[in-house]
Design a protein around this nucleic acid. Structure first.
Lengths: 156, 156
DNA sequence: TATTAAATGGAAATTATTACCATAACGAAA
DNA sequence: TTTCGTTATGGTAATAATTTCCATTTAATA
């Protein structure tokens, strides 16, 4: 089994447990959305609309509102995270394991999104939280600027 | 003169220069909005609506769209920064000097916003950017969690 | 299977932000 | 200062993302 598939199973477990705990229901639609999201959008940053359009191809009966609601559900149980890169629409990403926690560099020119991870930053943040008696649950870090390609294009 | 007043003057200079460079016009409305924003919202995170409502009290002839446009102008010339704390509305904050660059901790419970600064984090980010040949212009860092007050209230 | 609570789809409502446009104000040049 | 071209303004309408509503369907439990 691939690492991606293993991760998917782990998320599925979390999701099922959340559903059970909150006395929610497991539905066909939720299964479909889960599958699409965790199969095709690992490491991506998908818009609700994009996900909806994609799902609609194979499952035309699924409603827009349901996709919204389901992504929110994924957020609540911690298997998806919401990002906001300043273009007015929320983006969602399947969370990976703690070990793979990462952040984003966004190019102001071409809009491309690069990922990076850095242990030193993470431990800094933990220290800061501790120092302020703040119980950290999540954090977001975004770097905006010019990617190497656009930088090169500019000087050329 | 207080430090706040000095800062305000510096921002004013930047703003005037930007206006001159871009052949824009200096208007009564822009003056009023500038003054309100930099006098009363230093260190705050104000919504367009809040700022508009506040200004309207003393200057009822100022329009909503103008406040929007002017804040965007402040952004363009780098004297204001936009924040997005996940409640669907953009917030604006007068930028301080580089030395005072800072980030935010947001309490998921009470919504209070705490500020912090940390040199180690900053230098980490610069290194990361350099390593990826990314030309950094800005960055945002937010910590979400439970503030000490809410944590105390929960266990009590 | 019957019952109850939750979920769904589609459309309408809401919210934040932007665009439009006729009028007003600015600023450079005469 | 007056004129003239340009930019800004205010009010409203339009747009775009997200949420709510509600009648109907579906899942879970007894």
């Amino acid at each position: 089994m691939t690492p991606v598939a293993i991760r998917k199973m782990e998320r599925r477990k979390t999701f099922n447990e959340y559903i059970a705990k909150k006395r929610l229901k497991s539905t066909k639609q939720r299964d479909i959305i889960f599958d699409e999201f965790f199969s095709n959008y690992m490491g991506k940053h998908v818009t609700v609309e994009e996900l909806y359009e994609d799902i609609k191809k194979r499952h035309p009966f699924i409603g827009f509102a349901t996709v919204y609601r389901t992504l929110k559900l994924f957020m609540e149980c911690g298997i998806a995270s919401e990002r906001n890169f300043g273009d007015g629409k929320a983006r969602y990403e399947p969370v990976r394991s703690e070990r793979e926690h990462h952040h984003h560099m966004i190019c102001n020119q071409c809009g491309k999104i690069y990922e990076f991870a850095n242990n030193q930053v993470e431990s800094c943040l933990n220290q800061i939280a501790k120092l302020n008696e703040f119980q950290l649950t999540t954090h977001k870090l975004e770097i905006y600027g010019l990617c190497s390609d656009c930088k090169a294009a500019k000087t050329a």
